[in-house]
């Protein structure tokens, strides 16, 4: 029953822990203030040492330390992803549980709405909403969270329908449990596995969405750093200052890859259990 962790997964888990620590400890780890500009230190290459500090990953077009900006950018990425995933997880699961438990018209209404939501390209919806509401951290989280819940609803709905038909739910009814207790104690813990798998894959997607929106100038607003906006700003210097696009891009790539591999591993761990009995 004990989880066997292969060396590959161990590396992935270590890398993920590294990203989380970097994001959480950005103040401690950053060699410089990510917002402090210095026109004298514009576009310095990685490893450049001034009299006061060493710029390990170089500086950007406003002379800010890139390493510090990437660390703070990791915080923005993870925070936006975590919060928006939480919002959509809660909203989507609640609606899926309701649809699966009450079935009938409730289910028809909710699931039709889900179908409608899923037929709108999510990134387009996010871009339009931000364009109308204007950018901002909370708005970004809400926009991402409230456009991405339908996938959870689908999974929660199917899983609830399946679990609700099992004898232990009948037994809970026989015991005298009310609907709230049955949903909360008997159904939710037993549909959590597949929902977590969805949440992980969505987490990777949210990181990409945040980077994409920030790249387009619709996400985290300057001067605050985000990998997307760093890359966006670095785009025009690609030939002169490759580090401005390569380093945040590499971070984005590695983080999303780790999240996705972790998600696959999680799915393999969750699935056999739900498939066998």
């Amino acid at each position: 029953m004990r989880a066997r962790v292969s060396p590959g997964i161990a590396i992935i888990l270590l890398l993920l822990a590294g990203f989380v620590l970097a994001a959480a400890g950005a103040e401690l780890l950053s060699p410089a203030d990510p917002l402090r500009q210095s026109l004298l230190l514009r576009l310095r290459e990685p490893g450049f040492a001034s009299r006061t500090a060493t710029y390990w990953l170089g500086t950007d077009d406003l002379g800010r330390d890139l390493l510090s900006r990437i660390l703070y950018g990791a915080r923005a990425s993870l925070l936006v992803a975590a919060l928006s995933v939480s919002v959509s997880l809660v909203v989507g699961t609640a609606l899926g549980l309701l649809a699966g438990w009450f079935r009938g018209w409730t289910a028809v209404l909710i699931m039709r709405f889900v179908d409608t939501m899923l037929s709108i390209p999510a990134i387009l919806l996010a871009v339009l909403t931000v364009a109308v509401l204007g950018p901002g951290f909370i708005k970004l989280v809400m926009v991402l969270g409230l456009t991405r819940w339908p996938r959870y609803t689908r999974v929660a709905y199917a899983a609830t329908l399946q679990v609700a038909g099992l004898p232990y739910i009948k037994a809970a009814e026989m015991a005298g449990c009310g609907a709230t207790r049955i949903l909360w104690r008997h159904i939710l813990p037993n549909i959590a596995g597949p929902l977590m798998v969805v949440a992980t894959s969505e987490f990777g997607l949210m990181i990409l969405f945040e980077a994409g929106l920030s790249f387009l100038g619709l996400g985290i607003q300057p001067p605050y750093p985000s990998w997307g906006s760093i890359m966006s700003a670095g785009r025009q210097y690609v030939t002169r200052a490759w580090w401005l696009t390569v380093f945040p891009g590499a971070c984005l790539f590695v983080l999303v890859l780790c999240v996705n591999v972790f998600g696959d591993w999680l799915r393999d761990r969750v699935d056999p259990r739900s498939r066998s009995r």
Partner: peptide, 24 residues
């Protein structure tokens, strides 16, 4: 019920399961 495997909530201890009718 017929199938003892699906008659018990896998995420609940057997003590909680047996005591649930009395508790609720």
């Amino acid at each position: 019920f017929q199938d003892p495997v699906t008659s018990l909530n896998p995420r609940m201890t057997i003590g909680e399961a047996v005591g649930e009718p009395l508790l609720v």
